[in-house]
Write a protein that binds this DNA or RNA. Sequence first.
DNA 1: ATGAAAGCGCTAACAT
DNA 2: ATGTTAGCGCTTTCAT
Lengths: 359, 359
Amino acid sequence: MPTIQDVALHAKVSVSTVSNVLNGRTDRMRAETLARVEAAIAELQFRPSKLAQQLKTGQTPLLGLLVPSMTNPMYGYIAREIESYAQEHFGYRLLIGSTYRDRDKESAFFEDLSAQGVRRVIVISSLADERHFESAVERGMTVVSYDRGATPGKLSRVGHVMPDNFEAARIATRHLISHGHERLAFATVAGMTMSRSAKIDGFHAAAEEAGLKGKVLDGGPLDEYGDAVIAEVGRATAHQIAALGQRPTGIVALNDLMAMGLMAGLRETGLEVPRDVSVVGIDGLYLSGLSNPGLTTVPLPVKTMARAMVERAMRADAPPESAESDQVFAPEPLVQRESVAAPPDRQRAARVPEEGTAS
Amino acid sequence: MPTIQDVALHAKVSVSTVSNVLNGRTDRMRAETLARVEAAIAELQFRPSKLAQQLKTGQTPLLGLLVPSMTNPMYGYIAREIESYAQEHFGYRLLIGSTYRDRDKESAFFEDLSAQGVRRVIVISSLADERHFESAVERGMTVVSYDRGATPGKLSRVGHVMPDNFEAARIATRHLISHGHERLAFATVAGMTMSRSAKIDGFHAAAEEAGLKGKVLDGGPLDEYGDAVIAEVGRATAHQIAALGQRPTGIVALNDLMAMGLMAGLRETGLEVPRDVSVVGIDGLYLSGLSNPGLTTVPLPVKTMARAMVERAMRADAPPESAESDQVFAPEPLVQRESVAAPPDRQRAARVPEEGTAS
DNA sequence: ATGAAAGCGCTAACAT
DNA sequence: ATGTTAGCGCTTTCAT
């Protein structure tokens, strides 16, 4: 690899002149000099070492991204949007890390990033507190956290970007109600996070509006399962539902993946969606359009949020006020597919023929 | 951020002593000195700058990973396995890039990696040739390529790791044949890659074994579609199939995602899986276990391959012989689910009851 | 308009 | 056993 020295020699100028052209200070030199330098650069195929630049400037064009798991399609989706926005608009690449919701792994990642010279990171974490990376912020990192608000009462220099989870769940629930459902359930996993409780609140709010009382179903912990994680919890929940005396007829799932697991599980127990039970998801994964029956879901504005996170991470210099830096994004309009119908006791009117329903 | 200087001062030793403890050369000093240094490090919370280390040693603990798209669950899966193996066994982090199968994006990524000091990269590319990164190899990068063999005849210093695509497709096809299918089709996308042609060959081989003649269905190009890409092509293929006079009864899909799209599309046309047509996928995504009907598929040994790729990328020093560096991995045993049944004309025996089939 | 030189935070000879 | 020092490849004053 040629260095700036080589170029200088080759162009018969000093390294500072080369550096100047590298940094666009071309006004400080004769056109002829510039031409020589550029020729040398081209000829040697010289690419300045970011490493050396970083050491000098303290800036590295790398964005850290912390996700619970890349295998989760939702995180893959978010990661993709973050990546392309950061790349296209700022020339930043992504340094990614999966944490499997483990605090030590998260901390270790922050350590590494910091040692690596990375100053901007986006975190998707479901861990309750963010103390373990508050320290990173204090050391000068800009961090933006997804799907959680600032800890109430605590000042924080961490940026927060999230969907309006309350509203998303409320929309999903209302959809069920508008189809006549009265026995409502919300399928979630064990462990409360801000986003989960917001969804649950939204679910209850919608139920109450209609004078109904919703039930929250906890499918169990996430970590016991390998990969399919959330989907497996959904599957477990389905079996739990099947065993219930008074079965709910309308279910809002924590997210699309869980909904898909739920539908698979329901099928295993002989229950049919949407004939016996209706299901609504939240997220808007394209995969949900592939399921059978197609999953009705409330899409989250992933692109917009990804953009907001990158912007926030980049424009670090903005007023680092306290908690007011939270940004909440409204969900997109519900996408209606085939996983919702009237509850069983209201279906006499038009017991849909084979094809109209599911398979 | 404290530097090695600060630590030296704090411990009242020279920087080289600190450097020595950092690099495990602790035998060269008195235990007492070591203790002082360690204390200083702890107290100052000193983390050596990888940046500076890299500049000095030319080694950066970063592994480049080039994927067509993170949103594709298969790549997400592979990326995850690569990440954890590289992290756990070598302390490497992942610098990831999506290329959307674009040559310029791939080249740009290599440029960036190289400037970033990254010397090891794993590439998942479906582009026909690998000339654009052969040059990276010549500049000293170690690159391992997934799902393609060395270009025949051409020497290459690029490592190659891939599944036995021929065998995978053959297994899938035989499975269909063993269920009595005689009108066989292979659903693929436009554009031939090594892995796609290997699968097609395997498909034909299995058909011929049985004295049958398989048909290859091309669902169209990948790039027209946004995200759901392959699944959408599958969907298109389904509509194409429905319009056919002599419909195939057994279809092998290029991969699971395409199979899922195919099943969704089939459903749209009123065709039922597996009653009217049977479908087999290749990959073994956990999502395929969630589909309805559950997708029968030939799983690829992702974990093993990920491991092999990382090892190859790390142990760069191994004999950089010519093409013989290819590593091919056998698929895992076919996972039987519900997407395959006897062809329609053989089903009179036991026309399966509602539940046994699909919904 | 151009060049010399002092680092950025480390590592690794090479002293002592 | 410990310290001195010369870089790694760049950026950036400050001279000339």
